[in-house]
Computed example of a mutant assay.
Amino acid sequence: MSEQAPDDQRPPIAAAVVIQDGAVLLVRRRVKEGSLSWQFPAGEVESGELPESAAAREANEETGITVTNGKKLGERVHPNTGRKMVYIAFDSAKGEASVVDDEELDSLAWVKHSELKEYVPYPFFGPVQDHLDAALLSS
Rank of each mutant, 00 (worst) to 15 (best):
Q4C: 09
A5C: 12
A5Q: 15
Q9K: 14
P12R: 07
P12I: 04
P12Q: 08
A14P: 07
A14F: 06
A14C: 10
A15V: 00
A15D: 13
A15R: 08
A16W: 15
A16T: 15
V17I: 09
V17S: 01
I19F: 03
Q20W: 03
Q20C: 04
A23S: 13
A23Y: 07
A23N: 13
V24G: 11
L25Y: 07
L26C: 13
R30V: 11
R30E: 11
V31A: 10
V31M: 11
K32A: 14
E33Y: 04
E33R: 09
G34H: 00
S35E: 13
S35Q: 05
S35F: 08
L36W: 05
L36R: 13
L36T: 10
L36A: 09
W38M: 06
Q39N: 13
A42V: 00
G43P: 08
E44M: 08
V45R: 09
V45Q: 14
S47H: 08
S47C: 03
S47K: 06
G48R: 11
G48E: 13
P51G: 13
E52Q: 11
S53I: 07
A54C: 06
A54Q: 08
A55E: 05
A55H: 00
A56R: 01
R57C: 01
R57L: 02
E58C: 01
A59T: 01
A59I: 03
E61D: 13
E61T: 00
E62S: 02
T63M: 06
G64W: 04
V67G: 01
T68Q: 15
G70A: 05
K71F: 02
K71Y: 00
K71W: 05
K72M: 10
K72L: 12
K72D: 09
L73N: 07
R76Q: 14
V77D: 10
V77T: 12
P79L: 07
P79W: 06
N80Q: 11
G82D: 10
G82V: 07
G82Y: 08
R83L: 13
K84H: 14
K84M: 12
M85T: 00
V86E: 15
Y87L: 11
A89T: 01
D91G: 10
A93D: 02
V99P: 05
V100M: 07
E103F: 00
S107V: 03
S107E: 15
A109S: 13
A109Y: 04
W110C: 04
V111T: 04
Y119M: 10
Y119E: 07
V120A: 06
Y122L: 15
Y122I: 12
P127V: 10
Q129N: 14
Q129E: 15
Q129P: 01
D130W: 03
L132S: 04
L132W: 05
A135H: 04
L136K: 12
L137T: 11
S139L: 12
